[in-house]
């Protein structure tokens, strides 16, 4: 396996999983905000579904997306099966409940008095939502870390909808499977190390973001 091939595979992994996570954040955060502020009949069902979705097996998501994008499927006309776009869609579906669920949990851990006090100091509705985001950003980052960590390491969905096409839809995880199957254990181990290093680097960055906002004093709170 050539160096340029490894770079290309690694880069695609980052792009696919990164875009899926960012998309999931763009949809998941507003969804969680809506669920936090609004009460409606069936809310509990929606939250339960989201929490269940946090543990979706990637293979099942892959199967579901494949059924939709298959040539004869309802979205077959888009002709995106076995493309990076299909991989992003599958990983987006895996990441979305993780981000929405953990964001909602993070919101619920914020003392409602914060929002009341923000409001009472003159915050508009938007400013109140920003205060909520700011107060819960440790939890939000935990959600992003969990979602990104989940999608970059999954193999089932990208394999099914990407097809592991060399130079086009091959990512780190599918490449490891491929190399192992072919008995190229050395390459497989190297790719595995790259994947671990990549995960570590991105998590290091996110964690340092998270800890920057951490309170310095960790003891019990005064009244």
């Amino acid at each position: 396996m050539s160096f340029s091939e490894i770079v290309q595979i690694t880069w695609l992994s980052v792009i696919v999983s990164g875009s899926a996570t960012i998309l999931a954040l763009l949809f998941g955060l507003p969804a969680a905000t809506f669920l936090y502020f609004k009460n409606f009949p069936g809310k509990r069902l929606v939250v339960t579904l989201i929490n269940t979705g946090m543990g979706l097996p990637p293979v099942v998501v892959g199967l579901f997306v494949a059924l939709l994008l298959w040539r004869n499927g309802p979205f077959g006309f888009l002709q995106i099966m076995y493309t990076p776009v299909a991989m992003v869609i599958a990983q987006f579906i895996i990441a979305l409940p993780v981000i929405a669920g953990l964001s909602l949990t993070a919101f619920e851990q914020v003392d409602p008095e914060f929002l009341l006090q923000a409001r009472a100091l003159g915050a508009s509705s938007w400013q109140t939502i920003l205060v909520l985001f700011h107060q819960s950003r440790m939890g939000q980052l935990a959600g992003i870390i969990a979602a990104f960590g989940g999608v970059i390491s999954e193999v089932g969905a990208v394999m099914m909808v990407g097809g592991n096409l060399k130079g086009y839809t091959r990512v780190l995880t599918t490449a490891i499977v491929q190399e192992t199957r072919m008995g190229n254990f050395r390459s497989a181990v190297y790719l595995g190390l790259i994947l671990l290093a990549l995960s570590f680097a991105i998590n290091w960055f996110l964690t340092s973001l998270q800890q920057k906002g951490a309170n310095r004093w960790k003891g019990p709170r005064w009244k």
Binding site: E113, F114, A118, A120, G122, H134, Q135
Partner: peptide, 19 residues
């Protein structure tokens, strides 16, 4: 109401502070 709300500051009994 929104305009008038800006004229009022209400302090909760429990002093909650933001990050």
């Amino acid at each position: 109401v929104p305009e008038l709300r800006k004229k009022i500051v209400y302090l909760l009994q429990k002093p909650v502070f933001f990050r």
